[in-house]
Each structure stands twice: as C-alpha cells, then as structure tokens.
C-alpha cells in the first residue's frame, strides 16, 4: 500500500462509501485491480469448465424436452463465461492470457466442476445444489463495487434461476417416481452434497483474501455466511422431498435458527483445488482439445479478415 497515492486511495474509498460503482479507467488501487482480475477470470473459467459435467448428458437426456432444456442451460454457461471474460478485459487482462492460463493449468476454477456427473439424476441435483449455491454467491456479487462485474452478475443471476428450477423439477419428479428413480436421485444427492458445501471456498479463518475483498466492496458477504444460507435453504427442500442428506450430524439449532452441519473434509477440498480431484485432468484435456479443434476456424477467420483489409 506504500506505493499507492494516498489522496487517490482516500477518494477511491470515499466513492465506495457513497455506493458509487467503479468503472474501467477510473483510478483504483493496484491490489483492487489484481484481486478483481483473479476473481473474475476464475469465475469465467468456472463457467466454461462448468459446461463439461452436464454437457456429457446432452446426447443421453431421457426426452427431447430434457435435451432442449439441457442444451439451453449449457449454452447459457458458455455465455456467462463470455460476459465474465469481458468484465476481466475491462481491467486490462487479455483474452489470450486468460485462456492460456486456463489451458496450461495455472488458472483456478471452481472445485465443483472436477466431480463427475455419474447418472442422469446428477443433472437435476447439479441444478438444485450447484446452481442454487451459485445464485447465492452471484446475488452477493451483483452488489459488487466494480461496475462491469456487477452488471454481468445481474444478467447471470436472472438466467441462473432457470438453471436452478429446471434442476429442481428433475429432482422433484424423480423423488416422486419409481423406487429406482428415487434411488438414483438419492445417490446423486449423496455425491453432490459435500462438494457443493466446499464450493463456497475455505472457512473464513482460512480465507486470506476475504478482508480485503469485503473492505473494497468486491464481496459483501463471507464464504461461511453464504454456505450457512445455502444449508438453511436446502435442508427443508430435501426434507419435503423425503431425500436424506449424507451428514449424520446435521441438525436444526432452534435458538440460532440455523441447520448445523458436520465438518467438511478440507483435505479433499485442497486436493481438488490443487489439481488432484476426480476429473481435473479430464476437464483440462477437454478444454485443450476444444481449443485445438477450433484452431482452423480462428485461422480461417483471420485469413478472411486480412483479405477484407487488403481489399478495402
């Protein structure tokens, strides 16, 4: 902070206090810019990699209706990645650097997408759990102090509600279905519950970036607060559908008004974050292949563009 211009910093923080949005080109602390580029590019990568677990089910969806819905959902995730790459670019990051960081394995993305979608019911549970969790996080980020990030989040949240509801509809139908369908959906719930809780990130006490992010209004709530809200929202839904959650110590604490959950397996979380999850390698391979397979299209576009320029 010693290198920052004190007067600029005071004015910057006064603007935040007045609730103004910071825009590209406005003065901002170097650390604010760095943290935003880190967060937004990770978020963009998460949307892009997030297409993969469910994308594999498009060709195997059980009906034409489900196939159309899943296609639309996966296409939305791709679009969300584009909104977010744009927001990061307004801070001076380039698309090339960000894609290169993802493909080389240097960039991080949400741990949740390194788990496999083993059965059709997983598509439902991903919508119910993962998209609900994402909406909580993104509703908070829609109030972020950086204008382009905030606006991308407003747009994304509106679309994510479709994602959440199509997933819940699948889970509701399966949970009221045959014994085999109930068993399939319970299996998916068991697989996704803990990874979803991990998706909110490390405990506040292990989250070194949180105080800075909250101070500058990039985040307005902490990982633990959001995780608790997700649990409080989801447990009653599971109870209504008579689905159990794989946590023997889950209980309602009436005094606090919260559902209390057991200890998260943080070793598993850090393993996945550090690249040793069930599908990390597979996800990166899929992204690299997509990038390589698209190279001829980019080359053709560039050649066409050069020809147009020469003609002009």
């Amino acid at each position: 902070m010693q290198t920052e211009d004190g007067a600029n910093l005071a004015e910057f923080e006064a603007r935040l206090a007045r609730g103004e949005k910071i825009e590209p080109g406005d003065w901002m602390p170097a650390e604010y810019r760095r943290q935003l580029i880190r967060m937004i590019s990770q978020h963009a990568h998460s949307e892009i990699v997030g297409m993969l677990p469910e994308g594999g089910w498009i060709t195997r969806a059980p009906s034409l209706r489900r196939k159309l819905v899943l296609l639309a959902k996966v296409q939305d995730e791709g679009g969300h990645g584009q909104y977010l790459y744009h927001a990061a670019e307004t801070l001076g990051a380039t698309r090339e650097e960000m894609i290169e960081a993802l493909l080389s394995g240097r960039a991080k993305y949400s741990s949740i997408f390194n788990y496999p979608a083993a059965a059709w019911a997983d598509v439902g549970v991903i919508g119910w759990f993962v998209d609900s969790a994402a909406i909580l996080n993104q509703t908070m980020l829609a109030r972020s102090s950086y204008g382009p990030y905030s606006r991308a989040m407003v747009r994304i949240c509106a679309e994510e509600n479709f994602h959440r509801k199509q997933g819940m509809e699948i889970v509701l139908r399966l949970s009221q279905g045959t014994a085999a369908q109930r068993e399939m959906v319970q299996g998916a719930v068991n697989r996704w519950w803990w990874p979803t809780l991990m998706m909110f990130g490390p405990r506040d006490s292990d989250s070194p970036n949180t105080p800075t992010l909250v101070r500058w209004g990039i985040k307005t709530r902490t990982n633990d607060e959001l995780r608790q809200e997700f649990v409080d929202q989801t447990v009653p839904e599971a109870l209504a559908m008579e689905l159990s959650l794989p946590d023997p110590s889950l209980h309602f604490e009436a005094e606090a008004g919260h559902w209390r959950f057991g200890e998260i397996n943080w070793d598993e979380f850090w393993n996945v974050v550090q690249g040793r999850g069930p599908c990390n390698e597979e996800r990166l391979q899929a992204r690299r292949k997509a990038h390589q397979d698209g190279a001829w299209v980019r080359e053709a576009l560039a050649a066409f563009s050069r020809r147009q320029d020469r003609a002009a």
Binding site: R65, L68, V69, A72, D76, E159, N161, F162, R164, K165, Q166, M168, E169, L172
Partner: peptide, 9 residues
C-alpha cells in the same frame, strides 16, 4: 423453457 417461470417447482 429458457425462462424460470416455465418450471412450476
């Protein structure tokens, strides 16, 4: 079906 109102959950 891209609209959340499509799903009567």
């Amino acid at each position: 079906f891209r609209d959340q109102a499509f799903y009567p959950v």
